[in-house]
Amino acid sequence: MALSSIFLPLPLPKLVSSSRSHRLLPVRASSDAPAASASFDLRRYWTSLIADVESELDAAMPMRPPESIHAAMRYAVLPGAGKEGAAKRAPPVLCVAACELLGAPRSAALPAAAALEMLHAASLVHDDLPCFDAAPTRRGRPSTHAAFGTDMAVLAGDALFPLAYTHIIAHTPSPDPVPHAVLLRVMAELARAVGSTGMAAGQFLDLAGATALGEAEVMQVLTKKFGEMAECSAACGAMLGGAGPDEEAALRRYGRTIGVLYELVDDIRSASGNGKMRSNASVLRALGMDRALGIVEELKAQAKTEADRFADKYGDRVLPLYSFVDYAVERGFELQDAAAAP
């Protein structure tokens, strides 16, 4: 369960064009980028990115022998034929946005962005297994093990991990403009983020019941399970875009913050009766609604502070970063309000 599952199925942010989001955006818009923020269309930006990521993923996984495993891998990664199965692709979107912020071409980040989605999907497939969450469905259709069998689901996950690395190596433009050393840093970053001190740690802590404990434990699970993946996405985009150390560090903090923010808002939605109940909706029980809302405000402010660092240097290119923050928060409360006043 990482970022993209947190995102709602399409349709995306009507929020950006709604009056609600405009209440938030002008904080930046009035100071640094007055006209552009109003005209920046997150939905269009996101839609074009998702289209690019989808075609990258589709091409990365051709049907070939043995067909059963490739069918299971495609099923796990690619969205269903239309309808509610569409994935939001948050990790790749964040990765490409970070790269583009720095002025580098999208093509430098797309292979790594697709790899993020493969790793992400691999962990989702394993997370849904009967011995874990035992989720019969994901994104509105049978989960991979329900469709292909548990043994094939384990193997599909196992095969998606290495595919992420072969894809990055085969398709990232390297050594020019991306030097081999940067490619290696990106791969090490990905491996760390999904490994025993990253997402796997979060899944482990969740299994161990840490979400039933106090605030510190809950925040740790959220950070490990969701923050690490988003941090990795932003960090990979930063490296591929040629970020300096300070820029990379700021984008890391931004990514981590926004990953936790998305999840927390998602849990608030779940607890208020909107959206699907998730296994870790107990986050809200541990924090209490008031505290959770307080943390949302803190995270939002932190993410904006990190994005602010880039405003002077990169101008309008920072706008996607602001809009992600607003989207993360706004969509949640909009739904919550709707539930409160049916």
């Binding site: 297994l129 196992d158 290696l184 299994l207």
Partner: peptide, 24 residues
């Protein structure tokens, strides 16, 4: 350790392998 942790253990070892190779 139980099945769920065994799945995670394998995934974590796989990731650790790539981290170990790629890390300068």
């Amino acid at each position: 350790y139980g099945e769920a942790i065994a799945v995670l253990t394998g995934d974590a070892l796989l990731s650790q392998a790539f981290h170990h190779v790629a890390n300068a």
